[in-house]
């Protein structure tokens, strides 16, 4: 049984739809920053985005080419494993479906990799079908380096560490290969609605 915390009342419950807050999360208004090292700063002149791995022909876009791709502006809720959720965040970027258009692959997994050496692994199925993007703007302004700029992955239906900041590429893999946090005790898939925070969840 869950022990009650004597004298703990919690903050007055805010006027937010509880159905939008996954178990163990709370809503914030600011935008906390979580990353394991220093913030990389890659000028867009040196930036490119690559899709490679278990595919016939790798594809790569320089910044101007990437920005010329069809982009979408959309509003989603995001959930960080450190317990905060931020509702109704607005982003602009390129759908992964667009980046994988015409790609034939036997891969079932993807490793997203970033400047600074960060990696995270996902089932390919979690990135396709309009569920994930590479975003370059937050709230209509270019994404700040602290929040992953020039561009980050955005996979809002999974905990936010899957939304790799400073993303530079997707490597399609046949086998599932744990990324940075996934190798360090965090859950391999990270579904906030199942509260999949750590290895044994």
């Amino acid at each position: 049984m869950t022990p009650l915390s004597r004298g703990f009342r919690g903050r007055p419950r805010r006027d937010i739809d509880p159905a939008r807050i996954p178990p163990g999360q709370y809503a914030v208004d600011d935008f906390p920053v979580l990353s394991a090292g220093p913030t990389p700063r890659t000028p867009t002149a040196d930036w490119s985005f690559t899709v490679d791995g278990a595919i016939d022909a790798a594809a790569s876009w320089r910044w101007e080419q990437f920005m010329a791709l069809e982009s979408e502006t959309f509003t989603v809720d995001i959930h960080c494993v450190t317990k905060w959720s931020k509702l109704a965040t607005s982003w602009t970027g390129v759908s992964i479906d667009t980046l994988l258009e015409g790609v034939e692959t036997s891969a079932a997994y993807v490793t997203a990799w970033s400047d600074g050496g960060y990696t995270t692994n996902l089932p390919l199925a979690d990135l396709t079908g309009g569920k994930a993007w590479v975003v370059h703007s937050f709230d209509g302004t270019p994404l700040e380096p602290e929040h992953g700029g020039p561009a980050r992955l955005l996979v809002p239906h999974l905990y936010f560490w899957k939304s790799a900041k400073w993303v530079r590429g997707l490597r399609l893999t046949v086998d599932d290969e744990p990324g940075f946090w996934e190798a360090a005790g965090y859950h391999n898939r990270g579904d906030p609605w199942q509260e999949q925070r750590y290895w044994n969840d």
């Binding site: 920053v33 979580l34 990353s35 394991a36 090292g37 220093p38 913030t39 905060w84 050496g117």
Partner: peptide, 22 residues
């Protein structure tokens, strides 16, 4: 962390933990 990188420390050698807020 930015200052340490500028001083020439290897980014991979720097571990950071951020305690909110922004």
């Amino acid at each position: 962390a930015n200052l340490l990188v500028e001083l020439g420390h290897r980014p991979q050698a720097i571990r950071a933990e951020r305690f909110g807020p922004t």
